[in-house]
Amino acid sequence: MIKVENLSKYFGEIRAVDEVSFEVAEGENLVLLGTSGCGKTTTLKMINRLIEPTSGSVFINDQNIMDQQPESLRLGIGYVLQNTGLFPHYTIEENIAVVPQLLGWDHARIKERTQQLIGKLHLDASLLKVYPAQLSGGQQQRVGLARALMADPPTLLMDEPFGALDNVTRAGIRKEFLQLDELTRKTIIMVTHDVQEAFELGDRICLMDKGRVVQIGTPKELLFQPADQFVSTFLQSDRLQLEFRSVTLNDIREHLPKTDTVNKDQSLWSAMESADKDGVADLSQLMNAFNQYQTKIKA
């Protein structure tokens, strides 16, 4: 569990982060969303003390991070960067083994864990002996993820983890990310400026602007109960797609003709994709149900 209380960071007169507070439950995935310069990355970096806060406090599992040695604090937190930050002079194998080495794991244990992880992350074993520069962007990002996951830390901080990838690679890797069992158990805070990504990966989203939190909530809350005009404007351009993706069949259940075969957790979006083949309902039925749901929720 991570608890952030009144966290602020001033750079001279500029309030990069201004009285930010939130909580992330065990196993939850919180996305810090906002335009560049909104303070989301600074907030993230204060959690593993890459940046020291001006005021406020952070507790990880009820322990104040300021009471710990920065090095030992960081050893317990996985970190994934936008530009991967892989060591160019280390092979992939050595890169992945950085944290276990620091923790003093023995050789066999490192090797075993490496094999396990590269399997899960679909990395070829032949890549272990090469250097980062010889890998594609997508592969590098997987290695970056593997490095962060090696020591199986309970907490993971991710700074635009897919930011450097092209859209196709990005969509693919996101899908894998959702399916990765290593990640489902973890408490994750992730920074992104990509609304789609935030809605797809976040259990909850913390929308930030000018160093302050505008709204924290589930994707649905942000869409249907926006805190203010800024939130609805921010989501406007992708609204329809976001709504389709975040509304589940369970939500519109009462408006559907037949309800017995419904998979409750399936999103409207995926139901629409399979509507034509033996789906629960056809496209017009789904749209109809969605419209009724929308009217009801706004009322």
């Binding site: 050893l75 937190i77 930050g85 060591f87």
Partner: peptide, 27 residues
């Protein structure tokens, strides 16, 4: 030395000395 690399090294939990000898000097 690429700032991202030293930041990654710091975030991995390396001490200043370890960063110097394992990352900065070799690079």
């Amino acid at each position: 030395v690429d700032a991202f690399v030293t930041e990654a090294a710091t975030a991995m939990g390396m001490s200043k000395k370890q960063i110097l000898f394992k990352v900065e000097l070799p690079l």
